[in-house]
Amino acid sequence: MASHPEANTPEGEIPKAQTKVIWKTFWILLGLTALEFLIAFTVAAGALKKWTFILMTLVKAFYIVGEFMHLKHEVKTLIWSIVLPFVFLVWLILALVTLEAGYIFDVKFF
């Protein structure tokens, strides 16, 4: 297959593993998760804490999708065909969770 130049390596000659980026990504993910735990037990509940968690989750998602799923290194067309639909979805999620849920809360309790 044209897209697999690595596949042409003759048998018996296995190149050395290139795992530097993989382990770097792992340490970033682990560090962020550890930091989330720290925040969970030290910072008081509130909007700041909530949005810090959401931001950290998005950073983790960036590393998983970008490095582990290799999307960062794909063609721009492919990147946008995956990311753009999701951006619109996030917009809908924010609208539903912040505006609509607030409305339901008001109707139920006030």
């Binding site: 593993a17 382990w23 582990f68």
Partner: peptide
Amino acid sequence: SVTMVLAVEAGHRM
């Protein structure tokens, strides 16, 4: 997930 990506990497190297 890390071991999976290591498997993918090993696959690239045949």
